[in-house]
Structures are given as C-alpha cells and as structure tokens.
Design a protein around this nucleic acid. Structure first.
Lengths: 205, 205
DNA sequence: CCCCAAATTAATCATTTGATTAAATAATTT
DNA sequence: AAATTATTTAATCAAATGATTAATTTGGGG
C-alpha cells in the first residue's frame, strides 16, 4: 500500500481497487479495510456507509472514463481524422492505467440499471450533441454513405478500443499472452484502430 | 413464469436469469426462489448449494457462448469470407436471445480469475488451432500484411459484434434508443460488421 | 503540561443470507 | 388401501457482513 496517503485517501483507493475488481455486491467492507490497512470502523467513520463510498468511487470512475472522451468529441479545432487519433490514443492510455474500469461500470449498470437513471448523471446528449458526431455525418455524406447511422462508427471506435480490456483475462488465456505481450498487443492497436476506422470512413490513411 | 417446466428446470431457468443479471455475489438464493416461484429449501434440495447451481449455470452459459463459435471457426468447407458471415450472424442470433450472457461471463472472470483456470475448462488452443485462424493468416499474407497478428482480426470481429450488447443500457441511454430501435440497430450490423471486416482484410465485398 | 478534538481500536450488535431440519403433502409402488 | 418414496413447506440455525459504540490513543493549541 502507498503509505504517504492520508487515511481517507487510502480507504478510497482501496475501495476503488476492490469495487472495480469484485463489484459492489462482491466487495466486503472488511476486504476494503484490509486492503487499506486500516480498522474496519474507520471506513464508516470517514464515509458513513459502504453505499456512500461506492457512489463516490463510481462517480469518479465514470468521470475517469467519460470526461476525456467528452472533451475530445467536442474539440472544435481538430478534424475527424485527428479526433479519431486522439480519442483512441487517450483511451488506450486511460485503459492501460485502469484496465478494470470499463467492465466495472458496465457490470454495475447491468446489475442495477436503475442507478443509471438516478445516481449516475450521464447527460443524454453525450453522443449526439458533439462535434465528432457532426463531422462523422459530414464525412459519411461526402463518401456517399449518408444512410449509415454515425453511431455505428462511434460504437466501432469504442468497441475495438475497449473490448480487449473487457475480455483481457480470456484473451490472455486463449492466445497464450503474458502481461507484457498483452501490452504489446494493445500498443499495436494504437495505430491499427484509427487506420481501420478511416478505412470504414474512406478517409485518407 | 413458464409453468410447464419441472420444478428442477424452473429453478435452473430462474437461476440463469438472476445470475446473469446480478452476478454470483449479487444474486440471493431467495431472489432465485422467488423468480422460480418455489420454496427456498427446494433450491438446496435439487442443487445442494448456491455454488453448485452457479457452476451449472456458468458451464451452460459458456457452452452457449463458445460452442457455436468453436464449431464455425473449424468448419472445413467454408472459406474465410463465408466464415465471417456465418460467425457474425450466428453470434448476433445468440446475443439477441441472451443479451446479458457476455457481460455475465466476463464479469465473473474478472471478479474471480482463478475459476478460469480451475472450473472453466476452456481449452487454450481455442483461437490458434482453428481453420479460421489459418485462413486469416493466409489472407493477410496474400494481401501483403503478413506482419499483422491475425488475433487482431478475431478481436475486431468479436468486439464489433459483442460490444453493443455489453454496453446495451448505456447505448440505449446515450442514443435515445428504445428496445425496438436497439434491435434494429443490431440488425443493421449483421451486414455491416462482415463488410467492415472484409474491408480490413482486403477481401472482395 | 494540560486540555480538547480528531483519529483509531476492539468489541459488539443487528440484519442478511445460505443452508438445514422436521413435519406435511403428494406421488408411486406393492 | 397401505406403505413407501419423493416433493414441498414453515421454521430455524449458523455464519457472514455492514454498522455502531464506547473506550483508547494521538496530535495540536493554549
């Protein structure tokens, strides 16, 4: 454990790790306390309850996963090709640092879809009202594919980037990769995923 | 609840539903009993324990998700283009019937990676020792991309097919889709995903 | 040094939850 | 129909787990 963090921080970091690994239901407050190297009562002293602590971790996780993308999707000065590059690259950076993040968020939403509407304040206009979306529409039109829903391309970008992390343990097992080879595999995709996306969009590569 | 199933079957079906929705840790045996419309004790009468019941459901889930793909990856008489079509199509069929399946399996593996090695008997050679893999290698060589790891293409196929289901609640929320529109969106991908894959492989489309 | 508030601990509580038991009912066999 | 076996139920147990409490320690201000 990192020792130069305050007790409060240590608990939150431990909670993040355990929650992201085991999910809300599978995480025991005793696990979190042990991971943080503190007495169980301190968890409630600082954060009131498991649920409150979870909400905090979940909000920060959502922010971690979505704030960067939201920003890049709306970067006004970059063109479509540049947005693809920067989004994919930034996402790989985020995921390499936090490989369990997507499965954690998606799993909790599946386990408790209500909280998506209540607690999680994700604006509905996240995808539609973005510069990227408009640029996708324009490019599809320019390339004679105006019938194609731009959402497909957004999904393709996210899926090809995120999926290797979501399926990481399976992927490692099924392709005999070790941790290092997995990183290498992901690094290859940094260039490949944008290349494939531009192929789909008939953009120059 | 379906009423013409045996008690034993009713319990298993309820368990499948609840486990896939909430995960092992989040599923309470009382939830399963209620969903099945039976007394709690019957669950243990027929299946001994929550864990035993879970193992059964997990094995059947894995079979559901992997048996078809394993078969199609090794179909000797079809060429690469046909394999892409049949794999994507079959997968969409499976996922439309069982949208929670992938996230369930991936989530449980993340929560408890050990069971991947112990309980889940997934052969290591699942990806490498397949006809599809060989055909991918050949095509990549023929198209002057022999440096490209064929695993990338397998991942792309699976990710573009599976990811919409893994992210379904989020996707529905962020793109204002209803259940019906989601199905429509997925149907569009039946043709699109194979098209994109062939583009990547420089196969005639 | 003393005081007081913040931080920490050990012990305990109350609820949830997986599992069992013993009795009751239904189905099958003889 | 009687006996036996299989199924189902209500009640209960025991362990796990989130949370609290009361006492103790620590650290800073006067």
């Amino acid at each position: 454990m990192k020792k130069d963090l305050s007790t409060e921080e240590k608990i939150k970091e431990a909670a993040r790790k355990i929650f992201q690994q085991k999910g809300y239901a599978g995480a025991r407050t005793r696990d979190i306390a042990e991971e943080a190297g503190i007495n169980l009562a301190l968890l409630n002293y600082y954060y009131r309850s498991k649920e409150k602590l979870f909400e905090l971790v979940m909000h920060e996780s959502l922010f971690e996963l979505f704030s960067a993308i939201k920003f890049m999707f709306n970067e006004p000065s970059s063109n479509l090709s540049e947005k693809i590059d920067s989004t994919v690259n930034t996402y790989f950076d985020i995921l390499l640092k936090n490989p369990n993040l997507p499965l954690f968020i998606l799993g909790e939403i599946q386990a408790n879809p209500d909280q998506l509407k209540e607690k999680i304040g994700l604006s509905d206009t996240f995808v539609f009202d973005t510069v990227l979306y408009k640029q996708l529409q324009d490019q599809l039109k320019a390339a004679g594919m105006m019938h194609l829903n731009p959402a497909h391309l957004v999904i393709n970008m996210l899926s090809m980037t995120i999926f290797p992390f979501v399926a990481k343990p399976l992927l490692i097992k099924l392709t005999h990769l070790d941790e290092e080879a997995f990183k290498q595999f992901v690094e290859e995709r940094r260039k490949l995923v944008p290349y494939w996306l531009k192929l789909m969009l008939q953009l120059p590569v």
